[in-house]
Design a protein around this nucleic acid. Structure first.
Lengths: 366, 366
DNA sequence: GTCGTTGCTGGTAGCGCTGTCAACGTTCCT
DNA sequence: AGGAACGTTGACAGCGCTACCAGCAACGAC
């Protein structure tokens, strides 16, 4: 009797096939397309595999079939809370399935992204999730030439490579500013860090909303390329105040900055929202818990990751979604930090995050 | 002349070898152990590879060599900030090298961990990073039987499977309580969520420190299995206050809870630290920025991830570290939120995180 | 009854790379 | 000078799986 086990002692497909009394190729089919087998053989292979504790050798499978069961994910940062939510969605959606996630960090560099993309594509991934719509020309060309489904996440824009899921950062920022205007605020500052393309588009939205109201002034905008942090929020706000002491409100490009601004206000004994209103972006958990509770623009990050991975897997398996571009929209969650100007200052009645008034909007105009 | 390209149009090692005028096996060696080649051939293979844009087929390599160049990482959560720091370290250390990271999420379940471990091991990873020291017996046996280096991270304890890097959560908690005692606080509460093994050991440290001072009372401890959040910090603190209105101080099992407690104090107009002191755990960035700035126990999470991956890769490449168990220690970062009881309340002079007094300790007793 | 058609199964031939072993030339030692 | 030792190279034979195509039975249409 010939060789029964591989050197490493692992069970191979051939052993399963032998025990089941079928040919190896039939056993192989069981794992890839069980419906193609007769019910009798199917059950026999199944029990044989279970009995032997068979685990397929992915390397052999990849080599023979010329494709891997890997989904490549390119994100700009592992630090940023925003991406960890998206990632969680992606991992949750892929869990239990046949595809495994390969993560790479572009560090907000589109050249790095291009390099990683080349690396990924060489391994023939089953699918790809990339962040944003600002790839290099070279990257774009590679993506278009790739023979696997691709999902662009985090934002939507024209000319999707394949599928796309996100929302309009521009419109989200405009909605935040509209909310502040609605509460009677006029001199609204902008505080932004990192200034990646999505933050840039939030700034664009802010600028356009301010210009529409003939309220835009360059000195109301304070930004930096430095990575974002709570401490930085305080520092940028300090700059902003120095430039414009009569500030009504601050729109922060993310919630960490907003929290930093809140702390800085407390440090300077500036009443929020009576003297200055604060609006953040992303609606991280702590926003509902702060004192005062902080207004923010809620974005569906977990949903985004989850849906992106689900759509991708469906597409890999040959079921392309009818809707290849999905706008997940956003909601302005109105809380105490931005309540109406010159209303009497009603302090927080009870707990955190109660009675949030929500304004839901799709990213697109109606 | 025979087949030049693979079906997919990819360059194979054979093409590179042909262009370089060497045998395929020599070309192969160039990529794995360049020193074994003569300088002449080395440069010829190198330029041939570059000219053709050769990218190795990892599946074929894995199949032929019976091992993959994958480092498996098992962590309990993707949400928790703590792990994103560790992960960042791991990814940073592995970047540019030959090994790729395969991440899986155990969701704080050691049974899930066991399942994932089995899956990983079947693919013969080059190395493994696992969280903590509380595996199932079955997992433990698999780890010990695995023929690859393994690093346990996040904490240290007896009987490492292989390598280990972390710190003593028990001692860290004791140090935090000692600090509070040093500031004159006596009735110190404990607030904890999630209660994974590491949080449990922090609780053990708290209990032992309190007992040493004959100050332990069961009602000072409030915990829940719910995942941690800022809001939850406020809620747990509310419970704690109801049980023990005369509280001096709160030791929070993490910084999110501490922030929640701070907000809750503000909501209830309890002065921090005059009426109640707060100490957190992990020293996330915002702690230095809060008002008042929040005392916390700094842990070297990024370092831990980075060092773990570095040690692992070294071990894979045959250079085992002299020091297989590394205690990264911790530091109690003393800030305003825990300054001395009954000292007159001196408000923060200027900015965030200035003049932090640090108390550095290795986890072990001296 | 013959011919397609369909459903299921198996044989053969690789996928692209590396482990093993053998062979070669060179150097160094005795 | 003879032989061992070393450094360098190549031939061969798979790694475990799947693509491709052929074969075979069962069935219905004419």
């Amino acid at each position: 009797m010939g060789r029964k086990r591989t050197k490493s002692g692992k069970i191979r497909l051939a052993e399963v096939a032998e025990l089941a009394g079928v040919s190896p190729i039939t056993a192989s089919r069981f794992f890839r397309n069980p419906e193609a087998l007769s019910v009798a053989k199917r059950t026999r292979v199944e029990s044989a595999a279970k009995e032997l504790g068979y685990v397929p050798n992915l390397a052999a499978r990849a080599l023979a079939s010329q494709r891997t069961e890997v989904i490549g994910v390119l994100i700009p940062s592992l630090t940023n809370n925003v991406f960890s939510d998206v990632l969680r969605g992606i991992y949750d959606a892929s869990e239990g399935g046949r595809y495994s996630i390969q993560l790479s960090n572009t560090r907000y560099s589109i050249l790095q992204e291009e390099k990683l993309l080349r690396l990924f594509l060489a391994q023939k991934p089953a699918g790809l999730i990339v962040t944003g719509i600002d790839q290099t020309e070279e990257s774009r060309a590679m993506l278009e030439a790739a023979d696997c489904p691709i999902v662009q996440i985090m934002e939507i824009g024209p000319n999707p490579v394949d599928m796309m899921i996100g929302f309009s950062h521009y419109e989200a920022a405009r909605a935040a500013i509209a909310h502040l205007f609605g509460q009677g605020h006029r001199k609204v500052g902008f505080v932004g860090a990192r200034m990646d393309p999505r933050v840039q588009r939030r700034l664009d939205g802010y600028v356009s909303a301010m210009k529409d109201a003939s309220l835009f002034e360059q000195r109301l905008v304070v930004t930096t390329a430095t990575p974002t942090s709570v401490t930085l929020g305080g520092a940028l706000f300090t700059d902003l105040l120095a430039r414009e002491p009569d500030l009504d409100a601050v729109f922060c490009a993310n919630d960490d900055l907003a929290l930093g601004v809140l702390f800085e206000c407390r440090r300077r004994e500036i009443a929020v929202p009576e003297q200055i209103a604060i609006v953040g972006f992303n609606d991280l958990e702590f926003m509902a818990s702060a004192v005062p509770t902080l207004t923010s623009v809620r974005t569906n990050r977990y949903e985004m990751g989850r849906t992106a991975a689900t759509m991708l897997i469906e597409a890999i398996d040959g079921r392309r979604p009818e809707q290849p571009v999905l706008d997940l929209g956003f909601k302005v969650i109105e809380r105490q930090s931005s309540s109406a100007r010159r209303s009497d200052s009603r302090p927080a009645a009870s707990g955190a995050g109660t009675a949030n008034k929500m304004v839901a909007l799709p990213s697109s105009h109606d």
